[in-house]
Each structure stands twice: as C-alpha cells, then as structure tokens.
Simulated scan of single mutants.
Amino acid sequence: MGAGFTVLGMKGLAQMRISEVARLAGVTVKTVRYYESVGIVTPARLSNGYREYTEHDLRLVHEARALSGLGIPVERTKPFLDCLAGGHEHADDCPAALAGYRDAIAELDARIEALTERRDLLVRHLRQAAHRNSRVQPARIAMSTNLYELPPNLPVPEDDGAADHLPGLEVPSLELPETSGEAVRLDALGGGRVIVYCFPLIGTPDVDLPEGWDSIPGARGCTPESCSFRDHYAELAAAGAPHVFGLSSQDVDYQAEVVERLHLPFGMLSDAGFRLADALRLPTFEAGGMRLYKRLTMVIRDGRIEHVFYPVFPPDRHAGQVLDWLRANPA
C-alpha cells in the first residue's frame, strides 16, 4: 500500500491547508475532518485557528482512503498507519498490518457465508412456491430470469427455408407419449384441425436456461407462447381446431410439471428421440449440449400438414396469429 505516493505539485512545501490535503488525497474536506476526529491525522493549530497539515498527514489520509476502499473500516487502519509512522515504505510492511488483512478477510468470509445461507433459503422458498402441488421436482437449483415475460431486443429469427417442404406432407404414423399418459397419433385424430406448436424447451423458475439462450434467434419465449395458446384455447377450438398440442424433446414427466404449473387445458407431446423431427425433416438446433426443436407450428388436417408457421416471432403473440389464420381460412 502507498508505494510511490508523492505530493504532486507540492514538492518542497512542508505545510498544507485542509482543502489542499482533501484535493490531493481525493477525498472531501469533511472526510479529512473525520479522520482528524478519530486520530488518524493530528494537524498543527495556528494562532488564528487554521489547521496546517504535513506531507505525512497527506500520506496518512491517502492510505486510510485506500484501506477503506478495500473494506477495512477506519477504526482498524491503525496497524497500517503505525507502520508508516515507523518509517516503513509501505503501510503493510509490518506483521500487525498483515494480521489486519487476515482479520478483514475472515470477516468477509463470515459475511459471505451468512449471505450464501440467506440466498439458499430464498432459493428453497422459490422452489417450494414454484413447484407446489407439482409431481416433478427439478434436480438442479439455480436462479433464473422471469420466464413469463420476453426481454426487450430479442434477435428476430430469419426464414432459412427449413420448413418450405412441409405443407402438403402426410404426417407419419408415429405414437408420441402425451402428458395425460396416453399415446397420440397425429395422423389419426380426425374431427377438425390439429395445431402442433414445436418449441425448444420450457424452463422452470429455479433452473437456469442454457448459456446465451437470449442471443439465439427464436429460442427464448416458450413459456409465453404456451400461455398464449392457453389463453386462446377456447377461441382456437371455436375456429375449427379442437386439438392443440405443444411438442418438444423434453421428457413427459418434465412436460407434465409444466402443464400443471401453467394450467394448460391441453397436453404436450414428448419426442425425446426426435422421431417426428427426423421423419418430417423438421428444423432443429444445438444449444447447451442438447439437440432442440426450432420453434415451428403445424396445422394438420386429415393426417396431412395443411399450413406451417415458420419462423415464429414474437412467441407470446403467436397463438393470436394462428387464430387469425384459422378465421381467414375456414375448413
């Protein structure tokens, strides 16, 4: 501490006024007066009542300010300042100063431990509230962003042509597990149009999303999208689409927790093996070491893909876009 400190512009001047000490040390006059009140500096008093400070006083004020910046309170700076007063070049050249460092570190460790315990308690409360009455509890605890709202300035996905081949294709005869516990064949539902919105993954309030998630075009927004389909579910059915499914590569138990937590009136389909994606050549991407579905919505009628929404943006208003299309294109 204090190596190479000099009184800039004051070389050869032995005495200074309080305003100059404050300016050179980078503190306020009030701070210098406080340091005097606690005994860090003891300026001489002139007959007219003015204080006169030496270069040594300036050095002490400078060191006290630097130590305060490290989190060492003024009342614990005495070992360091005594080290300077003893003629040492640095304020931490003495054993007592090193002990002062150790004490400050120990105090910080105790505060960190207390704050960590408080944080863990808050996370536990968050976990309990987020998953109350749910069947599935995620294994990893972590703080997350607000999944129900889209952050501003998300990158807009571009149409890369990966879905151009889909309209008109027959849906393969695959059985996919659904959160109700049944297996669903999309080609055999009948009774009106079927809406299948594919999405990457839905996060939970206490599990972090993959690193850099918000910077991937079209990745963020699975929870708002699902809530949008929930809120428009009755209107979609009235417009001729009584069957709505969310579809992702997440497992059924994970999806079941999502259906419960978001109060979805429809089920979700799990395609952990990407059987539908491979059969139809649906677009996917890699993130966080996982293969994931790109966001895409298919309108299926009589076992054939009638219309495709791709890319999907913004996801929180997508169900309204699907509803508008249904109304403009009655079956």
Results as ranks from 00 to 15, higher is better:
227 C>W: 01
31 T>K: 13
4 G>Y: 07
170 E>V: 10
261 R>A: 11
181 G>A: 01
132 R>G: 07
290 M>V: 00
171 V>S: 08
307 H>V: 07
293 Y>I: 04
269 L>A: 08
89 E>H: 10
96 A>Q: 14
15 Q>E: 14
65 R>Q: 11
62 H>L: 06
154 L>D: 08
317 R>T: 12
151 P>N: 11
78 K>M: 02
277 A>G: 14
289 G>L: 06
196 V>P: 04
60 L>G: 03
163 A>F: 08
320 G>I: 02
181 G>F: 13
149 E>I: 05
232 H>I: 01
18 I>Q: 02
168 G>Q: 15
184 V>S: 03
152 P>V: 04
128 Q>L: 11
239 A>H: 03
194 V>F: 00
230 R>D: 03
273 G>S: 12
7 V>E: 12
237 A>M: 07
86 G>L: 09
121 L>T: 15
328 A>G: 05
62 H>P: 00
261 R>S: 09
168 G>N: 09
313 F>Y: 15
314 P>Q: 00
126 L>G: 10
118 R>S: 12
272 A>Q: 15
153 N>Y: 00
107 E>N: 08
111 R>V: 06
314 P>M: 04
228 S>E: 05
252 V>A: 02
79 P>T: 09
45 R>M: 07
32 V>Q: 12
226 S>R: 11
40 I>W: 00
119 R>K: 07
94 C>A: 08
47 S>D: 09
56 H>D: 14
321 Q>D: 14
162 A>F: 02
239 A>C: 03
151 P>E: 03
137 Q>V: 09
112 I>R: 15
276 L>K: 07
24 L>N: 09
148 Y>T: 14
7 V>I: 15
148 Y>N: 04
279 A>I: 13
208 D>C: 02
230 R>H: 00
13 L>W: 09
119 R>N: 03
231 D>L: 04
137 Q>P: 00
41 V>F: 06
159 D>H: 14
285 F>Q: 05
258 V>A: 06
245 F>Q: 11
41 V>C: 13
324 D>S: 13
140 R>P: 00
326 L>M: 05
309 F>T: 06
19 S>V: 14
42 T>Q: 14
51 R>H: 12
267 G>Y: 03
317 R>M: 07
42 T>W: 00
128 Q>A: 15
306 E>P: 02
129 A>V: 12
195 I>S: 03
278 D>V: 05
10 M>D: 11
75 E>C: 05
280 L>A: 04
219 A>M: 01
103 D>Y: 06
41 V>A: 11
85 A>Q: 11
264 L>Y: 12
159 D>M: 01
310 Y>Q: 03
299 V>N: 10
71 G>R: 14
34 Y>N: 10
37 S>H: 10
306 E>D: 11
